[in-house]
């Protein structure tokens, strides 16, 4: 059972990470524009109007997906490679 996840930490990666944080912050702030009357969100559900709703949804979805996969699904279905042999 080998682990393949590595966390590279070169300078380039740090710049990319900083860029990601800035982009996330910027997109999140842009969502506040929709609180102004001149911007319409064409919302069907009222929670769509909450600033950053889609961001939170994306983050939580991914986090929950990993959480459930790692702690519930993996122990149930992960087996040695030669299981069927």
């Amino acid at each position: 059972m080998g682990s393949s996840n590595q966390t590279p930490a070169s300078k380039g990666v740090k710049i990319l990470l900083a860029a990601l944080f800035i982009i996330c912050g910027a997109v999140f702030l842009v969502d506040f524009l929709f609180m102004l009357e001149s911007f319409d969100k064409h919302a069907i559900y009222k929670w769509e109007n909450w600033p950053g709703f889609y961001g939170v949804l994306g983050f939580v979805s991914c986090f929950l997906l990993v959480l459930v996969s790692k702690f519930i699904i993996a122990p149930l279905i992960q087996r040695e490679e030669n299981f069927y042999e």
């Binding site: 990601l20 996330c24 969502d31 969100k41 889609y54 961001g55 994306g58 983050f59």
Partner: peptide, 16 residues
């Protein structure tokens, strides 16, 4: 609004 919503969803997925 739609573009912003989608970019929010995806950038925060990348962040996660």
């Amino acid at each position: 609004s739609h573009i912003n919503a989608q970019i929010l969803l995806l950038t925060f997925s990348i962040l996660a």
